[in-house]
């Protein structure tokens, strides 16, 4: 079986999805189910004091017994905030140590601050977290994150929530070629073909949220993404044909064509190849 293995655990699906920006929990659940994802990201936030008597909880809709929850550090701009958030997440999820680290550098672009990300990753790894790390598409940084002990590197395709697709496939290719741990494209996927291209490049998986949640029909898009990731993976494994500008080798047999038209004779008749 062609499975995704992260930190020693095996997953059938190579599509990881976020749970933000849906109109309600029932849509979140329907989209997650349609996506076939086994790993889903969640954020950690202050509870609304005094306003949560009967408020439904995300973990009741998407129970940790059914999914691998991947708590993130979205919204964190410092090492301290990211590390504190994930310590709280581990307590919240009964010692679960697989996490998504992202340390942002700029509220306008949400571009990752890689200096702070490297520092946070080092602390978290020392505390026995299994760190899946959101990173810029810099191959050297990605390798450093791998070398320090991250369990997966997750370069951006383009900026978070932008839907701009894969802007630098060549950098992704270098990161994939250099990596011995899973490489997942995280952020920037806009539509199904973007996910397929990522997988055709040889990515081990794709993580997305907005591309599904902001579609006109999120549940249908979740289904499309599931197929797109599977198609891209199969195409990658199958190995694509070589590109050439044109081919003198048609797909159908050259012999046995009825009312045989001899191209040599024709050309001779026009005098062009005489």
């Amino acid at each position: 079986m062609d499975n995704l293995v992260i930190a020693g655990k095996t997953y059938t699906s190579r599509l990881l999805v976020g749970t933000g920006k849906y109109k309600d929990f029932s849509e979140t659940r329907a989209a997650v189910e349609a996506s076939g994802a086994e790993i889903i990201t969640v954020a950690i936030r202050r509870t609304n004091i005094g306003q949560n008597f009967n408020e439904p909880n995300l973990l009741e809709v998407l129970p940790p017994s059914q999914y691998t929850l991947l708590p993130n550090t979205a919204g964190c701009y410092t090492v301290e905030d990211a590390v504190r958030t994930l310590r709280l997440a581990r307590e919240l999820l009964d010692g679960h140590s697989l996490v998504k680290l992202e340390v942002l550098g700029d509220p306008k672009t949400l571009y990752p601050n890689m200096v702070e990300t490297l520092k946070a990753a080092e602390i978290l790894i020392k505390e026995d977290f299994q760190v899946m790390v959101y990173t810029s598409d810099d191959p050297i940084i990605a390798k450093q994150l791998e070398d320090m002990g991250c369990v997966a590197v997750m370069p951006l395709a383009s900026l978070i929530g932008s839907g701009m697709g894969i802007l630098n496939p060549w950098n992704l290719q270098i990161i994939i070629d250099n990596a011995k741990i899973p490489v997942l494209v995280d952020a920037g996927v806009g539509t199904a073909s973007d996910a397929t291209i990522a997988m055709e490049l040889g990515c081990d998986g794709v993580l997305m949220n907005t591309a599904i949640a902001a579609a006109r029909d999120p549940v249908l898009m979740a289904s499309a993404m599931r197929k797109a990731v599977e198609a891209g993976r199969e195409a990658y494994l199958a190995g694509r044909m070589a590109k050439k500008l044109y081919s003198a080798n048609p797909s159908s047999p050259t012999d046995g064509v009825i009312a045989r038209a001899d191209t040599t004779t024709k050309k001779s008749a026009t005098g062009k190849s005489a």
């Binding site: 749970t19 933000g20 979140t28 969640v42 954020a43 936030r45 993130n72 919240l92 978070i160």
Partner: peptide, 10 residues
């Protein structure tokens, strides 16, 4: 004190 829960996020 910080009291936190899991919420939807990407």
């Amino acid at each position: 004190l910080e009291v936190v829960v899991a919420v939807g996020g990407g």
